[in-house]
């Protein structure tokens, strides 16, 4: 019997009702953003105080979206953000899960201390290290594609990789992997070792397949963090070549009068793909768990 079939009808209705009410609460600003993206500045504020704020009513226009594409360079920034996100997440999954494997599955001295250190690193807020980190990358020798090919430069500023490399190793991801790995029964490991496997093989063939939910979770969370990156590129990427999406949104705020309609359109263009990706990614996440049948 599936879980769904077990619930009685009144219970199901009650649950649906609860989910719907919660959905309304959680969806409110998203609907506001979508509705406003089709309105002009004045209409947004006129409707702001009422429920009309979330409804696409009144004078609707697609001019905001046209502007976002035409004047907003959104295509270029989108590709930058995509490259940054995919690279950081892919490298991060590898690097962080390997480190977590070492913590959770290998025996060595000082594990407790390193674990505590890891939790402590979680405490360091980015704002605390942003300025020293900026000073650091400003002086790190880097590479760039110049007119004549690969060129050595004196700093990492204004590149795509300055937005990638510092964020690959991530204490939060390591911690998340660690917690999950700890719960996987050691019997599988032992069986593999008895068969003569190396730790790397145990990692690849035992732990990873059993940890797909946490891999999916880390992917989603890291991807989101990198997609929404704002403070760091703001100070290290002055140019437009390597500029990511969130910085691109700033151009509508510039002067003193904010073009709210265009801001909303731009924000919608950033947010909607992420949510769609999330929905699709989820299906894979759930299916893989149901199929793996690890626990028990």
């Amino acid at each position: 019997m599936t879980p769904a079939q077990r619930h009685t009808i009144p219970l199901r209705l009650a649950l649906y009702a609860m989910m719907a009410v919660l959905a309304a609460i959680f969806l409110f600003p998203f609907l506001f953003m979508l509705a406003s993206s089709f309105k002009g500045n004045d209409a947004i504020f006129a409707d702001g105080a009422t429920l009309r704020a979330v409804l696409p009513v009144g004078d609707l226009t697609t001019a905001n979206y046209a502007h976002a594409f035409a004047r907003g360079h959104i295509g270029h920034y989108f590709i930058n953000s995509l490259v940054i996100t995919v690279t950081t997440v892919a490298l991060g999954l590898l690097v962080n899960s390997l480190a977590a494997f070492a913590l959770a599955r290998l025996a060595w001295r000082g594990k407790g201390a390193v674990l505590t250190l890891l939790v402590i690193l979680l405490v360091v807020p980015f704002e605390a290290i942003s300025v020293p980190l900026m000073v650091l990358v400003a002086k790190l020798p880097g590479v760039m594609f110049g007119v004549d090919g690969l060129v050595l430069t004196r700093s990492w500023l204004d590149t795509l990789y300055v937005q990638i490399v510092p964020f690959v190793a991530n204490a939060f991801s390591i911690f998340l992997f660690y917690q999950f790995f700890r719960d996987i029964p050691k019997d599988f490991d032992e069986a593999a070792y008895v068969d003569g496997a190396t730790p790397l093989q145990v990692y690849a063939h035992v732990i990873v397949p059993a940890s797909l939910p946490v891999f999916a979770t880390v992917t989603i969370l890291q991807a989101l963090a990198m997609w929404n990156q704002y403070l760091w590129p703001l100070i290290t990427v002055p140019g437009e070549a390597a500029r990511p999406l969130m910085i691109g949104m700033e151009q509508f705020f510039g002067a003193r009068r904010t073009a709210w309609g265009e801001v909303m359109a731009y924000a919608a263009l950033i947010t909607v793909p992420v949510l769609i990706a999330f929905i699709f990614f989820q299906r894979w996440f759930v299916r893989s768990v149901v199929g793996s049948g690890v626990k028990g």
Binding site: V131, M134, V135, A138, K139, R154, S155, L157, D158, L231, L234, I235, T236, P238, G239, E240, I247, E250, Q251, F253, G254
Partner: peptide
């Protein structure tokens, strides 16, 4: 020309001067 958001302008200038750019 390069056009920078106002939010991090000062920091970008400082970073650029550190990097000699």
């Amino acid at each position: 020309a390069q056009s920078l958001p106002q939010g991090g302008y000062d920091q970008s200038v400082v970073a650029a001067s550190l990097a000699g750019r």
